[in-house]
Computed example of a mutant assay.
Amino acid sequence: MEKRELTCIVCPNGCHLVVEVEGKEIVNISGYECKRGLKYAEDEIIMPKRTLTTTVKAEGGHLPVVSVRTKEPIPKELLNKAVYELSRITVKPPINVGDVIVKNILDTGVDVIATRSLYGK
């Protein structure tokens, strides 16, 4: 049996989690103070996810790039592919905070949204 130690990042408690894994199956999870910590540990072992924060090119705006992020976490293994897809995109003003820049990136069901507004020069 393998023991994996994690620090929960879901809330400010930062619980120290211990996950016991046998093969590909979770046998036991300890150290969490809330159900969110339990879910975080399960997800981190089974399919780790991360929120992607990056920029996309802008044309004709007051800035050369616009900051964006995934609306929800996506599988960690898709981060590089998502960054590549976003590197191929150029947006034009007007862009407002929360506008969808890419809908359903890489068929994950997760949209990429603007985190900064872009207006014309």
Rank of each mutant, 00 (worst) to 15 (best):
L6C: 03
I46F: 09
T70I: 06
E5W: 09
G60Y: 06
P73G: 05
V68T: 06
C34K: 05
N13Q: 14
E85G: 07
E72G: 05
P73E: 07
N28V: 04
V19T: 03
R116F: 05
V100E: 04
Y32W: 09
E5Q: 12
D43Q: 13
T55R: 13
G61D: 10
R36P: 02
P12F: 06
R88N: 14
V18D: 03
R4E: 04
E85Y: 09
V110A: 02
P64Q: 09
V10Q: 12
E25S: 11
I113P: 02
P12N: 09
H16K: 14
S117W: 00
T115C: 13
K71E: 14
L79Q: 10
A82C: 08
A58W: 05
K81F: 05
G61P: 06
I101K: 04
D99V: 00
V65G: 01
L79R: 05
N13G: 09
Y84F: 12
K92I: 05
P12H: 03
P93M: 04
N96V: 02
N96K: 14
A82K: 01
V97H: 08
K103R: 11
V110D: 00
T70Y: 06
G31E: 02
T55K: 14
M47D: 09
V27D: 04
R88H: 11
I46V: 15
I9W: 02
R4D: 02
G37L: 00
R69K: 15
E25D: 14
L78G: 07
G120H: 10
Y119R: 14
V66F: 07
A58L: 11
R4I: 13
P64E: 12
G60A: 03
E44Y: 10
R50C: 02
S67E: 15
V68L: 09
V102W: 05
S87Q: 11
T90F: 10
V83L: 15
L118H: 07
D111N: 13
I89C: 05
R36E: 09
S87M: 04
K49S: 07
V56P: 00
T90Q: 12
D111K: 00
V27N: 08
R50Q: 12
S67M: 07
P75L: 05
L78D: 07
P48T: 08
I113D: 07
E33H: 13
S87K: 08
C34F: 01
V27W: 01
K121N: 13
K35E: 15
E25Q: 15
L79P: 00
L52Q: 03
T90S: 15
C34D: 10
V18G: 01
I46C: 06
G61R: 06
I46Q: 08
V27R: 14
T7M: 10
P64A: 10
I9K: 14
L52R: 01
N80H: 08
R4K: 11
S30W: 03
K71G: 12
E85Q: 10
K81A: 13
